[in-house]
């Protein structure tokens, strides 16, 4: 369905120096800096797959999505979406895709929501029967009728996102791109969003590409994930694989009664190899990171409490962000006293 071959995208940036003089200098002669937002990325996505595309802010996720949708032209490389080169044949490609950018809306701000739908119906030339059937389906999953007559600018974020996802699905696209569709939503609204995505994927075999910072989104929806960092794909595979490999990372943080000053070898106390634990200290705060398969939370807590007076303790399970940074830092994982 989607094929990306060695795509790169660089932007030219002009760096300006600080201050008034720097500003004037920059006006005449700004320093040109080339930034590679996406760097030699390749992947293939089959019809009906739901892909989680993750990475930190500025990693290149949105730039990739913009290239796949035909908004941006890659500096080099090739993209095929359902046999169409999106940036060369943008209009034809646009009929096959639906896009939601969580930070923006494709609805008409000043018009009642229902007007936006009827405008989109005309733009995509959706027939009356299809329009009716889909609006009924959206009603089931997204409950739009409670605010369909209100101007879009008066909707809450959750309502607007529900409306936006309905708008992107009105023409029953083959591929759905969702760029942070659950950003800023409360739990209830998130559930509804996920339900809608699932329903569309099941009923119409819609291929879905989803970028998010929310691990629950990924876990609920995706069978495969792509991780991008600094413009490069650093992981492409099943979510279950990555979870067995990295998901056992755990952190326990202690608040001690007195600042930690004796710098004893904690690895030795816990009877593990020094490279198996990460220790971070900030005066009276002590944080220990480890792999649950090597050490148990109980053992770590026991060792620390036996040697120090602990006033508070918190256990943190792995989130997707730390998996990403762990993968990125692979090899550099070690004991550090900083």
């Amino acid at each position: 369905m989607i094929e990306a071959k060695h795509i790169s995208k660089s932007f030219v940036k002009y760096e300006k120096e600080k201050g008034l003089i720097g500003m004037i200098k920059g006006f005449v002669n700004a320093k040109k800096v080339i930034k590679k937002a996406v760097d030699n990325v390749s992947f293939t996505i089959q019809e009906g797959e739901v892909i989680g595309y993750i990475g930190a802010n500025g990693a290149g996720k949105s730039t990739t999505i913009k290239m796949l949708t035909g908004i941006l032209t890659p500096t080099s490389g090739e993209i095929l979406v359902d046999g169409i080169i999106p940036y060369k044949d943008r209009v034809r490609n646009a009929r096959n895709i639906g896009v939601v950018f969580g930070q923006r809306t494709q609805l008409w701000w000043d018009l009642p929501l229902v007007e936006s739908f009827s405008i989109l119906k005309e733009i995509y030339q959706v027939s009356n029967e299809d329009y009716k059937a889909r609006m009924e389906m959206f009603e089931d999953v997204l409950q739009l009728s409670e605010f369909i007559k209100s101007p879009v600018r008066t909707l809450s974020l959750g309502q607007r996102m529900r409306a936006d996802i309905a708008a992107s699905l009105l023409h029953n696209p083959k591929v759905l791109y969702l760029d942070e569709p659950t950003i800023g939503l409360d739990v209830n609204a998130k559930l509804k969003m996920r339900q809608a995505i699932k329903t569309m994927n099941k009923t119409f075999k819609t291929t879905v590409i989803l970028t998010t910072h929310d691990l629950d989104d990924i876990e609920e929806l995706c069978n495969r994930i792509l991780i991008i960092d600094n413009g490069k794909i650093i992981y492409d595979g099943a979510l279950s694989d990555i979870k067995t490999k990295y998901g056992s990372d755990t952190k326990v943080s202690f608040v001690l009664k007195e600042a930690w000053t004796d710098f004893v070898d904690l690895a030795h106390l816990m009877e593990v190899d020094p490279k198996d634990i990460i220790v971070k200290v900030d005066e009276d705060k002590l944080e220990i990171g480890f792999d649950k398969r090597i050490l148990s939370v109980a053992h770590v807590a026991q060792v620390i409490m036996k040697n120090y007076e602990v006033t508070d303790l918190k256990i943190m399970e792995t989130d997707i962000e730390s998996i990403v940074s762990r993968i990125y830092n692979e090899g550099k994982v070690n004991v550090s006293n900083d």
């Binding site: 035909g70 908004i71 923006r104 494709q106 733009i123």
Partner: peptide, 9 residues
């Protein structure tokens, strides 16, 4: 402009 460029127009 991104929202315009995803439309088939």
């Amino acid at each position: 402009v991104a929202m315009s460029l995803i439309k088939p127009t």
